[in-house]
Design a protein around this nucleic acid. Sequence first.
DNA 1: TAAAACCTTGGAGTGCACTCCAAGCAAGCG
DNA 2: CGCTTGCTTGGAGTGCACTCCAAGGTTTTA
Lengths: 150, 150
Amino acid sequence: METTATTADTCAGPEPAARRPDGRDQYTISEVVAFTGLTAHTLRWYERIGLMPHIDRSHTGQRRYTNRDLDWLDLVGKLRLTGMPVAGMVRYAEMVREGDHTYTDRFELLEATRRDVRERIAELQDTLAVLDRKINFYADAGRALASERS
Amino acid sequence: METTATTADTCAGPEPAARRPDGRDQYTISEVVAFTGLTAHTLRWYERIGLMPHIDRSHTGQRRYTNRDLDWLDLVGKLRLTGMPVAGMVRYAEMVREGDHTYTDRFELLEATRRDVRERIAELQDTLAVLDRKINFYADAGRALASERS
DNA sequence: TAAAACCTTGGAGTGCACTCCAAGCAAGCG
DNA sequence: CGCTTGCTTGGAGTGCACTCCAAGGTTTTA
């Protein structure tokens, strides 16, 4: 059976399965699934679309991820929840592969992303204010109904 | 030609097209497009899926939106950018239509949404920190390259 | 050594939120 | 009155980000 994302990680299992030290950092795809919460499908898909660096293989062709790959996936995860489209992350990954001459471009992409994130936080705080007002309204209405009944 | 969303609203046009006072608040679909930034397609689609209250019609069957409808669309817009799925908003809309006995359910839905928003803000602030660190790294690298060249 | 669990591939399928289309009425202007 | 622009409908199409499948090879556990 293909390993699917165990999202409902009820109450901290036995161990968070710690990373191994650099040098002996060879993780199977299902270990990476456990680390990242992504599915194996998604990890393979990320590779197909060029979002991952080259991933090592065992002598029989199975993927062996490193700590560096895990770090990259952490960054991808963060960028993903900023709403950055996958295509943008692929562009960044390509620039990383292309080498040092892309430094300024990468810098600019990251700064643009930072601006977006700041903006999104502001929007959400705005929404939070609206929500608070509405929730207070409902709380008042609830109290009014309660006192009416008493 | 069907009116499409004028997203690139270059530098504040002539007037933000103010709302009319209650009583003479009858907006055509294209006016609502101008107010909300949604497309006419999307407004009609919202109606089909039950996300809107009943919308008045002119004697020939064209939609006539009110200030109240505009307020509702504002709320929908806010909820939309919290990442709330449309289905959740439809559920909320249904509860509003069902009347007063859904007050507590609505209250709970709003509170759950508020929790989500708070969480999302926290995640984004986390991401912002990562971004700041990376941006500083690139800035330092840039400076190093510059001084190397000098 | 045999069963069970895990990993491989390309390509097809899914769910969401729109997005567009064609054909035909409706409205405002000279 | 005719012309242009706007609004109507149901249903089909799009783009994104996965998500799953079948068939078969690999690794681990008993």
